[in-house]
Computed example of a mutant assay.
Amino acid sequence: MGFRDRGVEIKTPEQIALMREAGLVVGETLDLVRRTVKPGMTTGALDAVAEDHIRSRGATPSFLGYHGFPGTLCVSVNDEVVHGIPGDRVINDGDVVSIDCGAIVQGWHGDAAVTVPVGEVPDEVCELIRVTEEAMWRGIAAAALGGRVTDISHAVESYVRSQGDYGILEEYVGHGIGSAMHQPPNVPNYGRPGRGPKLVRGLALAVEPMIVLGSPETTVLDDDWTVVTDDGSWAAHSENTFTLTPDGAWVLTALDGGEAKLAELGVPFGGR
């Protein structure tokens, strides 16, 4: 492991392999909670399912206790964008639930998020979820060895802008990840390409667009965690952790390593 460009952590192939193990735990957990969430369930019950699965795989939840955060998941409903605290809130038919999950294996982190419609959800909200997830993949697909971090940012923003009049949160961004959950560099979801640290082998990044139907202006609630839209518009959040190998991109938190989606986008797959 080494450090370049003001604290950017460069991992060895062996360390990336451990991040893949953590990423698989995250991917499995999100797949499980996606299938588990249903009307009448509390966000706390969903959190318990996630914690049980992470620990059953010999991993540790990244979020639990992080700066005092009390949950294994961030569970954000409707106009809550990110960092929702799981608890007694009941999930209803028609809600949209953003679920962010992290896990640690032998000191190495994986981090990913999905947004799940529960029951009958308006078409415009389903489209918001689709656009957010696709923008994340377009960002990953824009990354190549020798490129720059904001190549990802520009691809995310360009795709979102091409799809309609959505709000892109600017205050909350993606990030480097490795021996800590949040590391340099920041990965904004907007901006001009060709800026920021160089994309090199051993760098791992979490790409995570947060997109809203209305204004991107937000407020943090009195719990000091939950971020909500000021205008009450609904939000979606999508995230994956990835790295670059000489063969291409490898999505460490996707169960198939991102192979299918990268092929759809015409991007080489760098996993194994």
Rank of each mutant, 00 (worst) to 15 (best):
S153V: 06
R20M: 06
G202K: 08
L213H: 07
I99A: 02
V267M: 01
F242K: 06
T241C: 07
W225C: 03
G271M: 00
P13C: 11
L252V: 07
L262K: 02
W137C: 02
V25E: 06
P70D: 07
R55S: 15
G271Y: 01
E28D: 10
D5L: 06
A206F: 01
T243R: 05
T115P: 00
G40N: 11
Q15D: 08
G110D: 09
T229A: 11
L18G: 15
V227I: 15
D52K: 13
D224A: 13
R55A: 15
V26F: 10
R34V: 01
E157N: 04
A103L: 13
A235P: 15
P188V: 07
V96Q: 03
V77F: 07
G214E: 10
T229H: 13
I140G: 00
E127F: 10
Q106D: 11
L64Q: 12
R130F: 04
A143T: 09
G164Q: 15
P197G: 02
D247F: 09
R161C: 08
V25R: 04
V118Q: 11
T42S: 04
V75G: 06
A180P: 05
P268I: 06
V251C: 03
M136Q: 09
P197K: 01
K11I: 01
E9S: 10
P197W: 01
L205F: 03
A59Q: 13
G257V: 00
G119D: 10
T226W: 14
P13S: 11
Q163A: 10
V8Y: 02
S179D: 10
V118T: 15
P268Y: 02
L255E: 13
S158K: 08
I91A: 10
F69S: 08
D223C: 12
